[in-house]
């Protein structure tokens, strides 16, 4: 289903439909994460991927228009790059340990220490939270700073020129004050 949604998103030219397909794609990915028992990741994927990013893309589309412009360039070069990269990635999975294999390297490194020690070191039932917030506290601090930086960047680029209380004072609204009055009334 994931593949079908992604392929459809490639073929359809209406950007509005593509946005919706990507939203569905995120929701499907979220359910995939749930079947993999990664509930925290599924949460994030459903809220960010299917929810907020869809809304943001839609607001962008409302500004830019819904139709994709046809490009005259040949698709041969991008197609080759994508196919080669995909083939290398699939070839790489042949070396990966079987899914759920307890002897896989990822289960041999730090995971056993977390699983054995976190109940009496942190004492939290949700081990994901204790790893993210305590053992990997610096990483999460960095992530929070990244999000903050993203917000500052968007504000610096777009900005919010009119705030809700001062709406009527801004030059654009001052020319048509009766409109904003009637909305509240």
């Amino acid at each position: 289903m994931l593949v079908a949604t992604a392929t459809a998103a490639l073929w359809i030219r209406s950007l509005f439909a593509v946005t919706m397909l990507f939203s569905i794609y995120s929701l499907l990915a979220a359910s995939l994460f749930i079947t993999l028992d990664a509930v925290d990741v599924a949460f994030t994927e459903a809220a960010v991927g299917a929810g907020i990013s869809t809304v943001l893309v839609l607001t962008t589309l409302a500004r830019t228009g819904y139709r994709q412009r046809l490009r005259a360039q040949s698709v041969a070069l991008p197609m080759t790059v994508v196919i080669v990269t995909g083939a290398v990635l699939i070839w790489g999975t042949a070396d990966m340990p079987r899914f759920g294999d307890p002897l896989a390297p990822v289960h041999q490194h730090v995971a056993p220490r977390y699983i054995e020690d976190s109940p009496h070191e942190i004492g939290m039932p949700n081990m994901v939270t204790s790893i993210l917030a305590s053992y990997r506290g610096f990483d999460t601090l960095g992530e929070t700073a990244v999000i903050f930086t993203a917000g500052v960047g968007v504000l610096a680029l777009l900005g919010i020129r009119r705030r809700a209380p001062t709406r009527a004072q801004s030059p654009e609204d001052a020319s048509r004050p009766s409109e904003s009055e009637s909305e509240h009334g």
Binding site: I52, L56, T59, R63, T144, I147, A150, G151, V154, G159
Partner: peptide, 22 residues
């Protein structure tokens, strides 16, 4: 709590900034 406050306000700010452009 700190993460939650930052994420919620940044997401809303980005949304407001996008909507204000409309």
């Amino acid at each position: 709590l700190g993460v939650g406050i930052t994420v919620a306000s940044v997401m809303l700010m980005i949304f407001y900034a996008f909507m204000a452009r409309l």
